[in-house]
Design a protein around this nucleic acid. Structure first.
Length: 418
DNA sequence: TCTGGGGTCCTAGGACCC
DNA sequence: TCTGGGGTCCTAGGACCC
């Protein structure tokens, strides 16, 4: 048995944790630079507020319903996510955090011990609420895809109360019949469109297809989904837990930048972020990709990218930020109003198979270890590479930012007793 | 006044080589 | 004289997810 536990309207619900005055109001959270709506609390959802729409286009709708608008407060969400994950992980000996608000749990060693999975799911839900004030849904099923289906049902079906268990055939059919194709994990809008041309309408229709035929006409991935919907496990635990093959850090800038120095600082920040993520999963970077561009909505769109090959795969932040400085000449052109830039590690190698080179100095692994330790002890950014610069004006626009209740001393909530 | 997210993986197509 | 296959690598763009 697998479970998927995820937060309802994650960021929007997180905004309510330390601000009870907005708990009963519709809340949405905007993406970086207050660009798009990325989270909608259940109350706002009922008002029909759309997700992933540019903020400036739906502003009128938000005002009409007096919706509370917040910028992304990543400091707060990171902290609350950690708390939520730590509660969930107490309920299984094997969990995997799939995203900031979703966690898979495996219960291989619990068969026969847990008599009622529904009760167990409700216990998880209650405990997360009690300890973090976050509303979560819990979906249980015999494959990872069915756990995802169940969590969808836990959110959507009125009789579920936040927990759904797909155990018997009857219920599986009941849930799948009410699920749209593009709500299935791995089926997006394009595939859904193609499938509907064949007369399929619901997840149940897809599950009734012959896997062989689906493989022939679509792909092994869709075939796998069909099998998983029927309770045949194709996705193994290792598939979702496997280390990333690519790591990116990209961002649109709060303000256009035009100076070479600003671009270097911005890219340097991304390069260091990528490097840190790579080290966290035990990877070394062999190929780095850097790009900078104006906005695609500009009249004259400018985009330049460059790949940089390290002679020896590395996780040394100094080497990675030096690569940025070296490549800057290609990316920078005077007069371009840069709007977006980013860095990605395209080729990663496992540090378990590190191959030293007699003629290339290896950097200082002790220095890197010390750097990592300082940042994990005192928080991200406690120690930096000089080329990253300090927090710049163009960093990020966050007009509707809530206090950093958990990560800034002056913002810690005060409870006064009379 | 201006404003349009971010991350990962896959695939098609081209360049190049034998 | 003309024709011809197949593999690898790279890149850009698409698809999908949250």
């Amino acid at each position: 048995m697998f479970a998927l536990t995820d937060a309802f309207g994650c960021f929007a619900s997180m905004e309510k944790v330390f601000d009870p005055s907005i708990r009963k109001r519709p809340v949405v959270v905007l993406s970086n630079n207050d660009g798009c709506i990325v989270a909608i609390c259940p109350i706002a959802k009922r008002l029909g507020i759309p997700k992933f729409q540019p903020y400036f286009k739906v502003k009128w709708l938000l005002q009409k319903h007096s919706v509370v608008v917040r910028s992304s407060n990543y400091e707060l969400y990171g902290q609350l996510s950690d708390q939520m994950m730590s509660v969930i992980s107490r309920f299984s000996d094997n969990t995997y955090q799939y995203s900031i608000d979703e966690s898979f749990s495996e219960f291989k060693n619990y068969e026969g011990i847990i008599s009622d999975w529904g009760d167990y799911g409700r216990e998880i839900r209650r405990t997360v609420w009690r300890e973090t004030r976050l509303p979560v849904g819990v979906g249980l099923g015999s494959t990872l895809t069915l756990a995802k289906v169940a969590s969808h049902a836990a959110k959507k079906l009125p009789d579920s109360n936040g927990v759904a268990v797909i155990e018997d055939e009857h219920y599986r059919e009941h849930v799948l019949r009410q699920m749209a194709l593009d709500d299935i994990w791995g089926i997006g809008s394009k595939l859904a469109q193609k499938l509907s041309l064949q007369g399929l309408k619901t997840a149940w229709d897809l599950s009734c297809q012959s896997p062989k035929k689906i493989r022939r006409e679509f792909s092994v991935l869709v075939e796998r989904t069909v099998n998983e919907l029927n309770g045949m496990q194709c996705l193994s635990w290792d598939d979702v837990k496997s280390p990333k093959k690519e790591i990116f850090s990209t961002r649109s800038l709060g303000q256009r930048i035009t100076s070479c120095d600003d671009l270097r600082k911005a890219l340097s920040n991304h390069a260091v972020a990528v490097c840190n993520k790579a080290r966290e999963q035990g990877s070394l970077i062999k190929t780095l990709y850097m790009f900078a561009s104006s906005s695609p909505h500009d009249e004259r769109y400018f985009k330049k990218g460059i790949t940089y090959e390290f002679p020896l795969a590395t996780d040394d932040v100094f080497k990675v930020s030096a690569a940025v400085s070296e490549s800057l000449g290609v990316l920078y052109a005077p007069g371009v109003p840069y709007y977006r830039c980013g860095v990605g590690a395209l080729k990663l190698e496992s540090c378990a198979f590190k191959q030293p080179d007699l003629f290339i100095p290896n950097g200082d692994p002790a220095l890197m270890e010390c750097y990592s330790k300082i940042n994990s002890r005192f928080g991200k950014g406690a120690i930096q590479v000089g080329s990253e610069g300090k927090r710049e004006a163009w960093a990020m626009r966050r007009e509707f930012l809530s206090p950093r209740y958990t990560t800034k001393w002056s913002d810690v909530p005060i409870i006064s007793c009379k």
